[in-house]
């Protein structure tokens, strides 16, 4: 009970810090000092204190977008084991609901972007939908591979006790799945090989261009939701990579948080060392991720 409360509190507080860590690592590799770790939180609070401007062409869809999006991601957070022994809510097949909730969050963002009637936002929405349609098979095939190798159907088992055994018997497949899910995490969170979160050139960006018309508290909600989503994908990667089961829940929680830190640092390193892929190359990367996941599944099915 204590750890369930703790994991939810961490889920609400820590994600913007993860963004701070990424920014910090990126700057350090480039030889700069970098923004303070709390900067994302400060930005969020600053945005929350501002007023919102709504275009006259927009309807309620535009206003509902950020709220529904954040709610969907928060609900997804309840399904994911975030350091405690089990997720807050767990039932067989909840990984499909997790993916659907993330899909819902994306859908409302896309619809809100289309609602503005801006050509740039429509372009960004088209790209976002194209790429996420390619990323989804990779995620699902990876999760199904996990289900196959651990024998569980809910995320608590998928990413829990069974993994330590699974790592011993089919490590190579799990490695492929971990790699593939890391690529999906980069794509879904608009990180560098796919999308550059720091760019403000409408022609090349994907996620940022969809939220151009949001301002003030709405933008804060969207950015907070993006941070939470990063934390969720981080949890997926970290749980998968940790593998081993720690008997002491406090130690497990600490290991999980350390893992999240390492995940953020890894993303920072990727961002610092790689350039953004050309848009035509992005589908190749995502298809490659799907192929890796599918390959892992085939290997697991054969044995």
């Amino acid at each position: 009970m204590l750890f369930t409360a703790l994991q939810l509190a961490a889920f609400l507080v820590l994600p913007p810090l993860l963004l701070g860590v990424i920014g910090r690592v990126k700057s350090r590799v480039a030889g700069r000092e970098g923004p303070p770790l709390l900067q994302p939180w400060r930005d969020l609070l600053r945005l929350a204190g501002k007023g919102a401007v709504y275009s006259r062409t927009t309807t309620w869809v535009f206003r509902a977008g950020p709220v529904v999006g954040l709610a969907a991601i928060l609900a997804a957070g309840l399904l994911m084991p975030l350091g405690a022994p089990s997720a807050t809510v767990a039932f067989a097949g909840d990984f499909a609901l997790l993916a659907s909730l993330l899909g819902l969050a994306r859908f409302v963002t896309v619809v809100a972007a289309l609602d503005t009637g801006s050509s740039f936002e429509g372009m960004g929405a088209a790209r976002e939908v194209t790429f996420s349609a390619l990323a989804e098979p990779a995620l699902f095939l990876g999760l199904v591979s996990l289900a196959r190798s651990t024998g569980g159907l809910d995320l608590t088992h998928l990413l829990g006790d069974g993994l330590a055994v699974a790592w011993r018997s089919d490590a190579s497949s799990l490695l492929l799945v971990a790699l593939s899910i890391f690529v999906v995490a980069l794509a879904e969170n608009a990180r560098i090989p796919v999308d550059d979160p720091a760019t403000h050139l409408e022609l090349t960006m994907i996620h940022e261009v969809m939220v151009l018309d949001h301002s003030g508290p709405d933008l804060a909600l969207i950015q907070y939701g993006a941070a939470l989503k990063l934390y969720l994908f981080g949890a997926l990667v970290v749980k998968l990579a940790l593998g081993a089961r720690l008997a002491d829940p406090a130690a497990a929680f600490a290991a999980f948080l350390a893992g999240q830190l390492a995940f953020a640092a890894a993303i920072g390193l990727v961002e610092a060392t790689m350039a953004r892929l050309r848009l035509v190359r992005v589908p190749q990367l995502l298809i490659g991720a799907s192929v890796l996941s599918g390959f892992a599944l085939v290997l697991l099915l054969r044995t």
């Binding site: 589908p283 190749q284 298809i287 490659g288 192929v291 599918g294 390959f295 085939v298 290997l299 054969r302």
Partner: peptide
Amino acid sequence: GFAPSMVLGALGIVVAVW
């Protein structure tokens, strides 16, 4: 193209494994 040839290669590997 690169993506189709990757998919073709993957299909070949899957058939080989199977």
